[in-house]
Design a protein around this nucleic acid. Sequence first.
DNA 1: TAAACTAGGACTAGTTTAGTACTATATGGG
DNA 2: CCCATATAGTACTAAACTAGTCCTAGTTTA
Lengths: 155, 155
Amino acid sequence: MLRISKLTDYATVILARLAAEPERRFTAGQLAGETRLAVPTVSKLLKQLHRRGLVLSTRGLHGGYLLARPAAQITAAQILDALDGPVALTECASSESHCCIESSCLVGRAWQRVNLAIRRSLQEITLLELAGLSGSGGHPSALDRGFPLLKRGPL
Amino acid sequence: MLRISKLTDYATVILARLAAEPERRFTAGQLAGETRLAVPTVSKLLKQLHRRGLVLSTRGLHGGYLLARPAAQITAAQILDALDGPVALTECASSESHCCIESSCLVGRAWQRVNLAIRRSLQEITLLELAGLSGSGGHPSALDRGFPLLKRGPL
DNA sequence: TAAACTAGGACTAGTTTAGTACTATATGGG
DNA sequence: CCCATATAGTACTAAACTAGTCCTAGTTTA
């Protein structure tokens, strides 16, 4: 029913690998090898992640990629935004709407609201958790804590 | 970032219109007129909604469509399932996975969990609210109440 | 200066989505 | 009995998006 693109999924896998060794610098080839993804694809994704500020890059010999900040400070929402852009749940909700009947617009606003709620929830999930690195020792993660999806307030 | 298909959005508009007058029987043509959608599209959607049990239909002269049950008993999740089917957030999470490295699978499980959480939240949103019919007099809707997205428990 | 990297963009194939058309079936009225 | 008005189901086409690849340019270090 809801879907994220394959590429976004791949990107998460790549970021998870980087998160596992935050100090180490990986080349695109190394990451491709470890994740079993094709090199061009990994390369493309890393470029995009770099452009969006999620990873640092160094060029030239012995260059490679590095997580731009601790995994705990990278959210699922940021990863999705980096790759798919901030696409709304419905077209009507995003920018200009031509579907100008009242019932439709009410529906649009409702979806918009659901969308916002989902976004908010994705902002609470960090790469640490996606990577399965949120150690049992730490404080309970958002995934386990149970958190409010939809909060009170104006649309 | 997350998206529902146009058709699903249309379907919601149609269902919202039906919900506004639960007693009245609408033909596909009437609904198309009122929602400004193309007749074949509306017709196609209504057929599918009927197959999934969301609307009742009567054939022949003076036939038409009717909500199968009160709008309060139709959830956003049901509408999405009816049209897009129960597609998972990621491919890896849905059926069999060939991406068999550990990090990847951890990621997959995490997405799966997020997916489940979103589903759960969509099950709490009714057509009444989507249609903007949840009167201010009633009890607060799930959209306003704030409800836990992710609950404790095994994956 | 050559080798090993990343940066950026262009291009192609495949899949999905949206929309339309056509045929069959059911109902009710003249 | 027949025709007009509906829905039911299926098949088809066009457009959009996704995934994946390739090529050229720029950067760093031995």
